[in-house]
Design a protein around this nucleic acid. Structure first.
Lengths: 237, 237
DNA sequence: TCAAAAGTGTTTAACTTACACCCATGT
DNA sequence: ACATGGGTGTAAGTTAAACACTTTTGA
């Protein structure tokens, strides 16, 4: 048998990096592991793939472990992680998914998981919260993908409720990018960019003068944003 | 046993979308399958993952099937494909890799493959060349990734020889994007963008007045390009 | 001498940035 | 009345697009 005829089977898992903007912070959904290995450690929700499509596996695991229904959320494939040593149980390849959610009700833990909760991404990125396996790296990759998608796509609306004001949308950018944005120029830019639909309604929930409510234009969600909204770059001279 | 305790094993493969700019066309490396299923069909080089890292598997398969050494080429993970029905042999999940190469010598087929060759991506995208499994989709995803990476990163240099002229670099953009670019504005833009190092040498291989030779600045390869080089957008009013 | 490509200059338009200013509400 | 955020106006600065023009080679 030639070497390339040897078929090794491995286990395939999905892990979900579900991000949200909550209480003025960029947060990620974590659970505490109920099963060995790494029992008790904070980790991403996820699990083994059954006889189903990969995105279906991600949605199923999210519901099983956190009771969050991702069917109406943005969910995209992030990357696969397959270093042979990444899981002590053997060769496990995980396909990571990235989800973006508006501020949802506090999650409730389910099977194989306890203490489902939102955790600020900052405490994962700076190592304050250590995650099981290579989940810290996966979160970092997901956060960077989200930050860069806000530049080139209309996906920031995925972090907002179904109806939102321009300043709520701006807060999403400011919190995800950790950078202040001029409210007046931002207003002009997004209202002329043709991915928001005015509902005609107004709200005063943000205080001050009533603000117009918008929703994401149905056919423009997850479209490329042109021109892009470039985040401020640090100049390296 | 709870449903989420059932661990299905599947087979994990890698497939490589190796792209190049050759003879004035954007081309992809294909092989003809020597093994069933889909024996004789054109397909991407690739194969099953052994006890090795995923990028190592991609490099090994490329060498085994086409004798192309990717160790000095740009190789990045593209996406994983895992629809249960995508392979008649059973559950096979493939991790696709995207490689960018300069115009290389014509490849030579190896084990499990015959007739390794470059094929214009256009004939794959328009269905003229039908590929085995879902490889047509994988090529389309790789092409779109490459097109968009040319906008935001310095990766166009990965399609050039180690030393190249500005107009050779411009031809890469024109062929990958299938759009004409103003030579004079392009020249100014890339020479002021600080990812090219002048070698001091000149060449007349493109005809006309001798052109300065550049190389990709070592520490800027695969960096973000700022400001980005946006490809012309079709306006949909 | 001519074609062909390299490279520079210049004009115009478009877009970005910064910030002044007025508006409409709750308290 | 006044604080708070919403929204518009505008001038200055910067960048991009179009294209005229000079330079340097090979044939």
């Amino acid at each position: 048998m030639k070497p390339n005829m040897i078929r090794k089977t491995c286990t395939v898992a999905v892990d979900i990096v579900l991000l949200t903007v909550r209480e003025g912070a960029f947060q990620v959904l974590l659970i505490d592991r109920l099963l060995t290995p790494q029992r008790g450690w904070p980790a991403l929700p996820g699990g083994f793939v059954l006889d189903e499509d990969l995105p279906a596996a991600a949605q199923r695991e999210l519901i099983e472990e956190t009771h969050i229904d991702a069917s109406r959320l943005h969910l995209e494939q992030l990357q696969s992680y397959g270093t042979p040593s990444r899981d002590p149980r053997g060769r496990v390849i995980t396909v990571a998914y990235l989800g973006l959610a508006p501020d949802l009700p506090v999650p409730e833990a389910g099977t194989d998981a306890q203490n489902a909760r939102w955790e600020p991404v900052a405490s994962v990125l700076d190592g304050t919260t250590k995650l099981a396996f290579d989940h810290g790296t996966i979160v970092a990759d997901g956060v960077e993908r989200a930050r860069s998608k806000l530049e080139y796509t209309t996906l920031a609306t995925a972090f907002c409720q179904s109806e939102f004001t321009i300043s709520e949308l701006r807060h999403v950018y400011e919190i995800v990018w950790q950078a202040p944005i001029d409210a007046r120029n931002f207003h002009r830019k997004v209202t002329s960019a043709d991915f928001l639909t005015a509902t005609g309604r107004r709200t005063t929930r943000d205080g001050g003068r009533p603000a117009a409510l918008y929703r994401a234009t149905e056919e423009k969600v997850n479209e490329l944003l042109y021109p892009p909204m470039l985040r401020p770059r640090v100049l390296v001279p």
